[in-house]
Nucleic acid binder design. Structure first.
Lengths: 190, 190, 190, 190
DNA sequence: AATGAATGAGAATTCATTCAT
DNA sequence: TATGAATGAATTCTCATTCAT
């Protein structure tokens, strides 16, 4: 995580990430976040107006990082298959690296519209990246295809996060499996 | 199925379903559930030992219903394609019928091991049903394929639940799309 | 104060009266009131929805008592002078008996519209009682006269509440003084 | 009067007056006062050691102004009646001009001894001004009479501040009414 | 079985005040 | 003088759960 010295904003987000990720939104106290960040409780509120907003900001930072790294990774890929592999690899590795933060994906504040907004905005961008590359290659219904691929990858988080025997090598196998399945499915739908 | 249980048991579960579904676990009060069920707060605790357990029981009933109806639907299908269509149709319709209960799929209690247990047990059964039919037809890696198909279907809940313009006809198109994509992908992976 | 056995509502109001009166609204904690009433904090909220509402209810009860006792006292008086004396006596004794609750008259919640409502409603009733008796005797501008008399009496609370040497006998002298002054003023304004 | 004090001192007091007057002591934040005065929060504490002390200083300035203007106004009056009219007019106009600052008269900090001191000191001086003029004309109990007159005038603040239909002309009528009532009352008590 | 009054632990948030710059 | 980022004490209110009836 980014810990630029003096960057209290990122410091707080890092602390929040650890605790929300390990314990979930409702089970994490603002006082714990403050303590972990090494600042006073009141200071949190100089940077984030509420617990909900802090969670949303933390998620947003993570989403942006996800998309940025994905975009970077894709620049080295040429063929569609390479690009799809890159997406799969990035997606699955994302979860693999967050095995200790499972709560992030199952516990978020319920009624926060800003949070929902953030999720939807992320999905739109993620889907567009995939859909664009599929469209260039002439596939019909690129958006639906994109969602399908993401769906395949996302379902795999269950094993990655909750199967303790899941190893880093397994990630690669899944990448190949998902990419092949999806590519074959696409090719014959053209 | 739950006729074994008394009337009041189901009455409570119905009330819980409505409220948890509309507002989420943390935003629903036990007193509200009692009121909606037309009984006293204390009575809830004669049937369920805690709020978490009530939520888990409610989810379990829903899961069982899902699997039971799926099994029934599959008995009329012959070919693999028909069976996959049936699965897709059932899965997507499930979400379509629960458009007003979106919180059910995004907010659940965090630290309840019984609940996690229930989800995993459901997934195992759901996957097995699909994997079995794929295995019979000779596909390799039937479990991974099953998870992939479920993943494709599950991603579609985003549109079904949150796109207000999503109509019942759209469900059918998605069924066809998902089934075709998956079938084609499978066929060429054999 | 009224402490009908089992009447928790009055029990809470009594405790609130003591503490709000001695320390003022903002300096009194709900937990203190609960402790003094011998109940749990949460129980307060079964009877009063907020601290403000508790204060208002307490004030209302006191106002009602004031007006009821005043009305009773006036039934034994015949002449106007007797009646004015009764009002003066009642008003000044009210403050004298509440020498230990001075904060009641100088500290109340600021922005509570219900509280303002209550005060104005009390004043309207108090003024009417006085104005009615003045009108019967043919005085012009009975409402203005009523307010003036109340003003004279109310100003005396400063000495009664804050002059430690103020004795019960002094109350009587003030009653005579205020009544005479006001009567004479009225008589020659007819 | 407060020319002795620096510009900023009065600037702060002006801001405090607006905000305390409109919202009351507890509902006004030091940060708001600073913002309104166009200075930094910390700067407030270079001039006033605490919120309470700021409120007291603000009140003191207002009291001093009240007494100074009253004294000035009385120098042009000759007869007792004229002088009483002047007092009444000044008192009622004071409230009329502060219709937007009602909180000043109903919300002040509770436990600040300096503030209580200030109020009592003001009352002593105000009463003395009135009592002196009454004593010169040979009235008995001049202090009690002074308090009574002030009481009559002060009760009228209720209408002036809270009756939205109260007009400037009504002030004059009240002045005449109060003065007459009081004069007549006094004359016949001699 | 059913009730619902009573409990009390628990947490977010505010804001007067300080002090390093 | 002036600043404003940082502090942290302090308190209301909620709500799952209990238990006497």
């Amino acid at each position: 995580m980014s810990q630029v010295q003096g960057d209290k904003w990122n410091l707080i987000l890092d602390a929040a990430y650890e605790l929300f990720g390990a314990n979930g939104f409702y089970e994490t106290k603002m006082s714990e976040i403050a303590e972990r960040a090494g600042i006073a409780k009141g200071t949190l509120y100089l940077y984030f107006s509420s617990k909900e907003q802090l969670f949303t900001a933390m998620t947003k930072r993570d989403f942006e990082q996800f998309l940025e790294q994905l975009t970077n990774g894709l620049q080295q890929s040429e063929s569609l298959k390479e690009r799809l592999s890159e997406v799969a690899s990035h997606h699955l590795r994302y979860f693999y690296n967050r095995r200790d933060y499972t709560k992030l994906f199952f516990m978020m504040p319920n009624n926060d519209p800003e949070m929902l907004q953030e999720i939807q905005s992320f999905m739109v961008q993620y889907i567009r990246i995939l859909a664009d590359m599929l469209e260039i290659d002439g596939f019909k219904e690129p958006k639906l295809l994109a969602k399908s691929f993401i769906g395949i990858l996302d379902m795999m988080k269950m094993d990655i996060l909750f199967d303790p025997s899941f190893q880093e090598e397994d990630v690669c196998q899944r990448v190949v499996f998902a990419t092949d399945l999806f590519m074959n499915g696409c090719m014959h739908q053209k």
